[in-house]
């Protein structure tokens, strides 16, 4: 981005030195009623769900549906291939669903495989990743988020966002650094 390009504010970024300071600040932002804001931490800080007032994740539902789909697909595949399309009689086992026990290992493995894919893609979809461009990366200080610093970001899209009021709210939480991150308009 060149210097003379027009910029517009994207988010406030407040930096903290400890997880306690972050959690205290998060409780305050939560109580102020913001929606489009987030905490950024080097590792998963336990207790932030509560401090941010987040609902539990629904990822398990996606994984469960994917796993059940795996079971159904595996049964359908084995039935179609070994019973319907080309019946195989092997080891005296009839080519029908009555030889079900011998199908269990493959049904199990397929179900695990689909649960894995469901969980991976479900997680990526819910965290909205991959997303290689984000205004937060305009901040140089933000590079420490994967090292030892803790951040709170409040985005301008939030209905309660106000350049002055949001700033004074964040200032009241005593961040070690506070900046307004801008992006190219």
């Amino acid at each position: 981005m060149t210097e003379n390009q027009e910029k517009r504010p994207a988010l406030y970024l407040a930096e903290y030195d400890s997880p306690e300071a972050l959690a205290k600040a998060a409780m305050r932002v939560r109580d102020a009623g913001y929606q489009k804001w987030d905490c950024h931490t080097p590792y998963a800080v336990h207790g932030l769900d509560e401090a941010m007032g987040l609902k539990p994740t629904k990822l398990g539902v996606i994984s469960f549906i994917a796993g059940m789909t795996g079971i159904c697909l595996a049964i359908l595949m084995i039935w179609y291939m070994n019973v319907y399309d080309y019946p195989l009689v092997i080891g005296g086992k009839p080519p029908a669903m009555s030889s079900f026990p011998s199908m269990v290992p493959i049904i199990f493995e397929t179900s695990i495989l689909l649960t894995g894919f469901g969980t991976l893609f479900g997680m990526l979809a819910m965290t909205k990743l991959p997303r290689h461009h984000h205004p937060i990366f305009e901040s140089d200080r933000f590079e420490a988020v994967t090292d030892d610093k803790f951040f709170i970001s409040i985005e301008v899209e939030d209905p309660k966002f106000d350049l002055d009021r949001t700033r004074s709210l964040l200032e009241s939480t005593q961040p070690s650094h506070l900046e307004l991150v801008e992006e190219a308009a």
């Binding site: 932030l48 994740t57 990526l124 990366f137």
Partner: peptide
Amino acid sequence: LGWRGSHRGWQHYERAYLIFAAI
């Protein structure tokens, strides 16, 4: 993947990790 250490992300991430461990 553009990871921002966001807690809204960590929340799903940790659950995904738990599910992977469980399967």
